[in-house]
Simulated assay, not measured.
Amino acid sequence: DSIQTLYNESLDSPAGSVSQVKDCTMALMQLAKGQGGLTVFVIGHVNKEGSIAGPKVLEHMVDCVLYFEGDQHTSYRILRAAKNRFGATNEIGVFEMRDEGLTEVENPSEMLLSGRPDDAPGTCVTCVMEGMRPVLAEIQALVVTSAGGSPRRTSNGFDYNRAAMLLAVLEKRGGLRVSACDAYLNIIGGLSLDEPAADLAAVVALASSYVDRPIPSDLVAIGEVGLTGELRTVNQLAQRISEVRRLGFRKCVIPAHRAGNLGTFPGLELLPARNIGEAIQAALHPKE
């Protein structure tokens, strides 16, 4: 049972209250720290927003907070550390649910890109940081002419407000009339991309779907997009590019002002772009 269902009979408050959760958790902490080599896992309910239900004091008391995430329609699960008093935070572990139980996925990037279609418009790969680990993710976009007066916007695994902003930038600075179209964004594999490094790949995927022209399957796009359409650099760019090269990609679109001090990556061509117009040109109209 979860910690919210446990109670101490000596307290008058009901199970799940602040005093009960705090008292029961404190008893478990004293048990774990009073005996050497003992680890205690406390299970907590999660509300609709994805955070731990009940009093916030539970997160402050424990040494580590782990979230076990996953889509019920996929076999992959992600173990994410949101708090770690004695180690790094925001690290993840990727597992696959099999008949014999959970099995570690040693290369999440290859897993997330498996089954990617070739020569299909509206798909682009980017590299995001999950803790200290670079992970490649596929962003799919679908842009179609709206049948009604109010175009529909839908995003799965990508922040809705940021997707709406990128669509506005794409129309104003990229010259594509997406305001009259329904637009859909989807992140493959159940990931939730919440860092700006995925902006450029989302814009390129949207443009690819709009003009119905595929992006080369060996191309990756990394960069943050500003409101004027400029490309901003992202942290740990060299580490991301190294992961792109390791997985066999040959081209990578990056912000132009960082291209000069990244060094060389044998077998990988860096395509610098100053704005989304140059990035779309490099991705959709590559030089032969």
Rank of each mutant, 00 (worst) to 15 (best):
E100F: 03
E69L: 13
A168M: 14
G44V: 10
D1I: 02
N235S: 14
P196M: 06
C181L: 10
A32C: 09
S19V: 10
G101K: 05
S150V: 14
S192G: 00
A88Q: 14
R153F: 10
D63N: 11
E224L: 00
E69G: 04
I222R: 05
P272Q: 03
P196Y: 06
V128D: 06
R116Y: 07
R250A: 11
T123Q: 14
E9F: 02
R274W: 03
S13L: 05
D118W: 06
S242M: 14
P286V: 10
G44I: 11
L206Q: 04
N156D: 12
R133K: 15
V169H: 04
S242Y: 09
R232N: 13
E9W: 03
A163S: 13
D12R: 09
F41V: 12
A164S: 14
A164E: 11
A221N: 05
K48H: 14
R245N: 14
C127F: 11
I139K: 03
N235H: 12
L28K: 07
N47V: 06
G157P: 03
V94N: 02
E269G: 03
S217K: 12
G174K: 00
D12W: 02
I188F: 00
L206Y: 04
A141G: 09
A137K: 07
R116T: 14
Q35D: 01
R245T: 11
A53Y: 07
A137F: 02
M29K: 13
T264Q: 15
C252G: 08
A15G: 11
S155H: 09
L112C: 04
L170P: 01
A238T: 10
I241T: 08
I43K: 06
P14M: 09
P196D: 06
G101D: 07
S19G: 03
Y67P: 01
Q4C: 00
T25L: 14
V105G: 00
Q4D: 04
V94G: 00
G16R: 03
A32T: 06
A82K: 15
K83M: 10
G277R: 15
D63M: 04
L185D: 07
I52E: 04
G263D: 14
I92Q: 15
K83P: 08
P286Q: 12
E69M: 10
G36Y: 02
S2D: 10
